[in-house]
Every structure is written in C-alpha cells, then in structure tokens.
Design a protein around this nucleic acid. Sequence first.
DNA 1: AGCGGGATTTTCT
DNA 2: GAAAATCCCGCTT
Length: 190
Amino acid sequence: MSDDFSVLRDDAVTVAKRLLGCIIERKIDGQILRARIVETEAYDQTDAASHSYNGKTPRTEVMFGPAGHAYIYFTYGMHYCFNIVAGEEGYGAGALIRAVEPLEGEARMVENRHGRTGIETTNGPAKLCQALQIDKRLLGHDLHTSPLQLAIRPVLPTSEIVQTIRIGISRAKDVPWRFYIAGNPYVSKT
DNA sequence: AGCGGGATTTTCT
DNA sequence: GAAAATCCCGCTT
C-alpha cells in the first residue's frame, strides 16, 4: 500500500474532506483490520477549539509535525481519539477521525469492543480507537508504515459530502468543520 | 427517544 | 481545581 500523502499538506478543512472514503489499515498479530473513513472534523491553530490553538506543547507537538502522522490523545480519563496530522511542518493542524465503516476483520473489531456489534462497533471517535486498538503507543506514528497505515482513495463527489458543526466542543461551537458521507450508517450523529 | 450522571486521568488555569 | 474533540447505563416519557 504505497500512497501519495501530498494531499495531506493542504489546510485542515480540505484534508478532513479529502480523507472521507480513504482507508485505514491496522495490523494486529498478523491479522489485518481495514475500515473506511466516513466522518471527520478539522482542527487548526487558528481555531479556538483546537489543541494546537495555544501553540506547540509536549502534548500537541505531533500536530505541528509532518502531515500523515498520527496525533492520538487521551481524554475523559478513559478514551483515545485518533487524528491525522495535516498541513506543513510547523503549522498545527489535523483531522479527527470520528467514524469508520469496517471492511475487513470486523469480528476482531467486535471482540475489541467487548461484543458491541453493527454500527456501534465504530460509530464514534473513541469507539473506533477501541475497535482498531489505537492508543498512545501509536502517537506520532508515520501512517505510511505498518502496523497502522492510511491509503488515499479517489475524491468523493461533493454531492456525497455533508458539512456541519462539530460535536462535543465548547469553544468555536458554530464553526462548520465536521464532514461526513451522506447516508452512511456509521456516521456518529446526523 | 431522550435526558442525566458516572467513569477516570491528563492538561491547563 | 476544573474541564475535557466521549461513552455507557439507567431511568423517564
């Protein structure tokens, strides 16, 4: 799976949209788990809701690094969320992966989710991290490489993309930087 | 179907 | 000390 990540060096909004339909591949104990990205949110350093808003810190350093690496954070005392770093190096931006659709290895994902099935397997940012076993060990990981890879797919027609406000934030509530694939059942909230 | 609270720890004020 | 880019459970309509 070799891909051109140059599209990820664009601004966070463009990248968040561009990632819809792209594929995440996770390798665990020799087994492949694959899923399609169906919902994303954009964050960047000009945005009060972004972790990168207050500049580079030990926590957010990865967001200021090269595009196509994994920015993973721990929140609410128990959950991980997975972002793909966007933009040029030195600029703090990324796209939160909010929902994916299982393509391969779904049984293993359900196991990882302690028996949650159907859309409940991966229809939320912390749910998909649990399903795909994404945690802090993969912070800063280059998504060109195993065991967590991103495969770029062709751009979706604009007519299939819905744009709306983000979820679960208190600052910059009204900024419409959430994107999802119209009609996809795995989208966390419509 | 919708609301409210608890879990639990890192990060920032 | 409080809030956090969340999820799950239980209770009420």
